[in-house]
Structure formats: structure tokens, C-alpha cells
Design a binder for these strands. Structure first.
Lengths: 395, 395
DNA sequence: ATATTTAGTCCACAACTTAGACTAAATCGG
DNA sequence: CCGATTTAGTCTAAGTTGTGGACTAAATAT
């Protein structure tokens, strides 16, 4: 639980403290870094030298902080060497991206494919091709890709890198990491979880505080971010907002229960038979009363489910993503009304509803961002991997 | 976020690693400690000497681990010097306890009082008397009390030590820590949270994994323990199970909403007018059909609310405490049935329902346990306080 | 031009942990 | 009963990392 602290760990911890400060506060002089971390100037200088040598930081210009005195050399996070790979398998597309250490998106590609029609092996083979092409292109940009993350639409076993069941893909027990077999460390995670992280790093970001990110697709999932970290629950199944009970005597759900949120606000409940999301939005824009009523009903149900979620989890903000992003204008009002009615008297502040600012790539980007996050949290571990590069850090 | 690591922190971290290992695995030899922590025998010896000098550990006998070789000296956590104070203010009683470092309950006292009839100042003055008496008695036992925790029936601001509103007591904006004014560091927390911790350390314990502890009193609260730590939410209001929506069109609730769990399974919904809990249990034992039906209804509603909670939070186990402990035989079956129906198909394992093994003192004990936990997590910080003792540790 | 202020480096030293030699105390085998 | 073997724990010299204060560098103020 509390691992032993050796000298190496002390070093690693301080390296992470410096890099983390650069990540959180932006470019800083060594003097400012010393102030914020509480380390001495000497130590900060040594650590910064190490980071610069590893290609994780660069000096960039000088700035005067006060009125007089020698100007400081500004050090900032560098994206020129270290990067991470984000991949996503979804029902009707594959996607991949490369994000560098400064969380700049360097490459982003999407491939529309009907993955329900293909075998898992074929889908994964196609993803491998996409990933390999991205790795080659990243190499040409001078980037060294330290790790990858695959987003999947279903609960995953993160230890083994396998999906037990992905109902929307029709997959059962597929060993994704193993089959994908890329030449770098790859981890898998749930799409809803990674989409929440995507919103954190590529959307509204830290201004959200602790937030619940609702990613409605066919099912309705949610990712909870607490103190900048995902909350996963004991078995990684936390955030199943779609099966929160809205009305115990409601319509039967595929989960075996009845009156789950999914039956009121899932894609199947909103779209007319054969219709797609764009069609629904067109009808809403055209003033179709039936469509508006369906959204009203879905929004209220969402508000009820979110009320339960807020009572249990107490987030600062709720971000509506997935299909609820384009429908935001029609569902957020009834949802917000339901929440205010039910929560207003007990709490000083009812969580704010906001729309997701990242599009369909939230999970892909979030996955790559998560890898970057881990590098920043432990730069020392990743320096070893980069030792093969020309200018190796001095012992 | 990631504080700088200095030499002192390294020391403190290793001290915590050793003490934590002793807490988790029980008595161990220095050799075993070295193995488990990954530190060398030399370092472990030094740290153990420090802990023994501080009165946090003692040697006790020798045991042979293997077949041959010199027997090791067993070191175990010692409760003879360091202790913590747990206090509780509730509607109809005050309680206090002293728990030592080995989590043995050394003193425990309860005082039945109607606290709704008195002013907050009078209640807190009476609590101060109770606490002072406990501190004196602890001193006579040779214990040095390092800190205290006050459990309150309502949401608290842990930063300032104040309650904003405690509806069951009729309190508004009471600065508890400040008014109590004890000669040791005191923190306040929510009763439901601390009851969950009480179950962790003085009840079924670590075998529960991540668990949700339901503590039904007048309202229905819940504490969520994840990886041995409380989950509090962004503002400390997480776990408000009582206002999870069971049926959106249900009866109006004092919170402004309708169909909250509290209206189906709260004390007011279960007890006949003027009846107390013992009376209800007597009726149930006597086979009263109306009472059984009320419990059946409450149990089902609880199952529905817990279904939502499990979907969102994904715990291993759910512990029923508070009024649900004596009613366990009557409510657990319908609650479990509802959960299995609604969760069975999606999850490999539906969380187990168990009854709380700690009684009414769960919160009082949990509070003291929390203080002990903090001492074990950072023994170095508390050594300073004990430096006044006769044999001060060698530099 | 000189004083003052702030940034960053250098160097001796201090705080830990480590590695491995060494001592202590048990069992095993003859 | 004595020496070989095994395991526990201590001691000492050395290694790694951070610290504190002196020192150098580069700017503004007077």
C-alpha cells in the first residue's frame, strides 16, 4: 500500500513534482519552480537539466518576473520528443491519434467501418494497420511514442487487456491487447471513462472540478473524474448511468430490470425507426412536436437519474457528451429543471450542466492523454525507455 | 498535488511503510519486515528502533520462521502509549471512546441525553466534560492521546470544523471544533462516513473490499469506502442514499423532491406513530402482518435505490447498519431480490448484502479509528508531539 | 558608474539508504 | 558434543540525493 521510499523514488518524486508543476502552471523559470515545489534552486536546476536532456522540457526565452534583477530563463514542457498513442474501436468507426507531452494533438485519423459485420480479429488487424501508420508518421515527426491506450465500448478487464462482453459490437471474451500486439506498452479501457478524461484535457478542462461526464451512445455510460483521476469502482463497472432506475415499474430493459434510464433516454428511445441522429436533429430544428416531446421526456428522465447520481457522488459539474451534445439544446432544460426541483433545497449549489466541448474523438484523445498523464506522473520510469536516443542523460 | 520529496519525507515514508506493514499483517520479525517493504535489514532495524522508542511498537517474544537458523524477534504494534479520541453527538445521546494504536477499544462511554431540547452550546459543553473525563482516564492508563474526531449527524465543513445544517438536531452554522476547544487537534466529520469506517476497523473489516455502508437513522445516509479510504465527493455530500429517487411520482419528501428512498424506508415510514424501533421489532417478532408488509415495501425500495448506487459506484459489498441492522431479517430478502433481478444479467457478481457487526458505536469508534489511521500513515509527524516523553528518540 | 535586485551555479556537507562483512543464535549431522 | 549450516540482526564504509550559503551573472534604479 505504501511502498518503500528509496533514493531513486525520491528522485523520481521530485522529477514528477517539477514536471507536474510545468504541466499545471505552464512555463516557469527555475526560480519559480523552486518556489512552487519547495525544493532548493540547486535541486531544481539539476532536475530541469535532466528533463531537458530527456526531451521533456525546453528553455524558451527570458522573462523578468519583478521590476529589477536578472531575468529568468523560462522553462516549458516540450512536445518535441515524447508522445502517446490513442486508439478507439467503436461500432461504426476506428480512430487513432498521437498526442505529444504538451498535450498537443499531432496526428488524428478516423476510419468509418461497420465493425459489427467483421470478426474481432479482422477489426483488430485493421486497427493494427491504423496504429502502425500513425507510429511511422510520428517517427517522421521526430516523436518517440512511449505507450498506447485502446478505448472500447464495453467493460474491460484492465489487468489482462480483454473485454468480457461488448454487447454493441457483439464481442465476447476478446483479448484485445494480446491480439493487437503492438511494439509498445498498450492498455485498454472503457470508452465512457476515457471520454471523460478527454473532456478534462482537451475540452473544458480543470475548470470543471470533479465532474461526471455522460456519454450517451446506444447505451448510456458515464465517467466520473475526481481530483483529476478516474473513479472506477471495485470492478471497473462504475458509471453505468444507463441502468440507474428512473421508474421501478417502467418498461423492461435488456439488462433484466425495468424503468432504467436507457429506456427513456437511450438512442433507441429517441430516434424514430431507421432514423439516425442527424435526422432527429433535423426534425427538432424543423419544429417537429413529437421529436421535441421525446427529448423533453428523455431530459426529465436524465434529470431524475442524475439526481440520484448527484446524491450519491456529489460532483461539481455534469458534462453532457455523446448523443446528448447535439441534443443539448433540447434535453438540458428539462434535465436541469428536474435536478433543481429535487436537489435545490438540500444543497447550496446544484451541479451545473454543461455541454461537451470535445466531439466524437473524446475517448481517443482521452486515452492518449491518460498515457501522457502517466508519463508526467512518473517521468523517471520513461527516461529509461528513451535512453537509446542520441544524447543520453548524464548518469 | 505531488509534494516535493526531501530526506525527511523519505524517512517519514519508510517509517509509515514499516508501521503500515505491522498494522496490516500483524506481528513480524525485522527480517520479514525487510522482505515485505523491500528495504534492507539495516534500515528496518533503525526504523524499528525509532518506533519502539516512540512507543508505537514493541518486541514480543521470538519465533522461528523456517526450520533452522536463529529465531527472529517478533515486533508488533504497541497500544501502550499512543491513542485517539472518538466523540459523537447524536439526537438522543453523546458518546466518546479512546482507542489505542493497535485499534483496541480502551474506554467507551455513552450518555443518553435529548440534545434537541438543549442549545448547541450546552450540548457541546456536556461533550467537553465527557471528553475531559476520558482524557484524564486515558492519562491514568499511560496513554497519550494524539488527536480527536467528532461525529455529527449532518453535513460538515471539515476545513473549518463547522456544521452548516444538522436538521435532526435543529442546528444551523455551529462551529463545533472551536466551541469544543479541547487541548488536542480535533476534526469533525459526518456520522454516516465515520460509521462506515467503524465497520471497516471494528466490524467485518477488510474482508468487505470496497463497500457501501448504509446507516439508516431518521434520514438514510451511506458511507462509501474505496481502497480503505472514504469517498467524499466534491463537497463532502456524497452518499446521500436517502434522496436517491425510487419513484419519481412518489410521495413528496422534505428535500423538495418526491419519491425519495427516505419516504419508503426511513424511520418515519416504518414506525407506527409514537412507536420506537424496539416496538417495531417486537411487532415483527410477534408476526404482525402490517409491520412485515411495511418492511417488505421498505426492503424493495432500498433494493431499487441500491441498484442505482451499484450501477454508479460498483462496490463489492453493501453493509446494512443503523435501523436496518435490527431489521435485517425482514428487509434484506426483498432488497436482495430487487438487486438480483435488476443487476444479475449485467454483472458477474451482484454485491453481497451483509448486516453491520458494529452497533450504535460505529461512528464513535470509526472516528477514533480514523485518527489512528492517520497516525499510522504518518508516524513521523506524531513523534514530534511525543518528544516530551522521558526517553526521547536518538536524533 | 555604482548599488541593488533577482537568477542561476558551485561546492562542501548533511540525511538517508545500501551492500556486505560480521556477530548471534538456532538446528542438523555425525 | 562439536562443527557445519542456516537464519536474524548489527556494524561500518560507501553511495545517492537534497541543502545552504557563497558566488557569479545580468538586469534596473539612482
Amino acid at each position: 500500500m505504501s511502498p518503500a521510499v528509496r533514493h531513486g523514488a525520491m528522485r523520481a518524486g521530485n522529477l514528477a513534482a517539477v514536471l507536474g508543476e510545468l504541466d499545471r502552471r505552464g512555463p516557469l523559470t527555475r526560480a519559480a519552480l523552486a518556489e512552487f515545489t519547495g525544493l532548493t534552486k540547486t535541486t531544481v536546476s539539476k532536475l530541469v537539466a535532466y528533463l531537458i536532456d530527456a526531451g521533456m522540457a525546453v528553455e524558451s526565452g527570458t522573462v523578468r518576473d519583478g521590476e529589477r534583477g536578472r531575468p529568468g530563463v523560462v522553462v516549458r514542457l516540450s512536445g518535441h520528443r515524447v508522445a502517446a498513442l490513442g486508439l478507439e474501436i467503436n461500432v461504426d468507426y476506428l480512430a487513432g491519434c498521437v498526442v505529444d507531452l504538451s498535450r498537443t494533438v499531432r496526428l488524428l485519423r478516423t476510419q468509418p467501418v461497420d465493425n459489427r459485420a467483421a470478426t474481432p480479429e479482422d477489426v483488430i488487424a485493421r486497427l493494427r494497420e491504423l496504429a502502425s501508420a500513425l507510429l511511422v508518421d510520428a517517427g517522421e515527426l521526430g516523436l518517440s511514442v512511449a505507450g498506447g491506450m485502446v478505448a472500447l465500448p464495453g467493460p474491460v478487464d484492465r489487468a489482462t487487456g480483454a473485454v468480457h462482453r461488448a454487447p454493441n459490437l457483439g464481442w465476447r471474451d476478446v483479448a484485445v491487447t494480446e491480439t493487437l500486439d503492438l511494439p509498445l506498452p498498450v492498455v485498454v479501457d472503457n470508452e465512457a471513462n476515457l471520454a471523460a478524461l478527454g473532456e478534462l484535457w482537451f475540452g473544458s478542462g480543470a475548470s470543471l472540478g470533479d465532474f461526471l461526464h455522460v456519454s450517451g451512445e446506444i447505451g448510456i455510460g458515464a465517467g466520473l473524474v475526481v481530483q483529476g483521476e478516474l473513479f472506477r469502482g471495485a470492478h471497473g463497472f462504475a458509471g453505468e448511468l444507463g441502468h440507474v432506475v428512473v421508474s421501478p415499474e417502467g418498461p423492461a430493459c435488456r439488462c433484466g430490470g425495468s424503468g432504467c434510464l436507457e429506456r427513456y433516454a437511450g438512442q433507441d428511445a429517441l430516434l424514430a425507426p431507421g432514423e439516425d441522429l442527424a435526422g432527429l436533429v433535423a426534425r427538432l430544428r424543423g419544429g417537429d412536436a413529437a421529436a421535441a416531446a421525446a427529448c423533453e421526456r428523455a431530459g426529465s428522465a436524465l434529470g431524475v437519474a442524475l439526481t440520484s447520481a448527484v446524491n450519491l457522488i456529489d460532483p461539481d459539474t455534469i458534462v453532457l457528451g455523446g448523443i446528448f451534445a447535439p441534443l443539448y439544446g433540447w434535453v438540458s432544460a428539462p434535465a436541469g429543471r428536474a435536478m433543481r426541483e429535487r436537489l435545490g433545497q438540500m444543497r447550496r449549489r446544484v451541479p451545473t450542466l454543461v455541454v461537451s466541448r470535445v466531439g466524437a474523438d473524446a475517448a481517443t484523445l482521452g486515452g492518449a492523454g491518460q498515457v501522457i498523464q502517466r508519463i508526467i506522473a512518473d517521468p523517471g520510469a520513461h527516461l529509461v525507455m528513451l535512453d537509446a536516443t542520441p544524447s543520453s542523460p548524464a548518469r
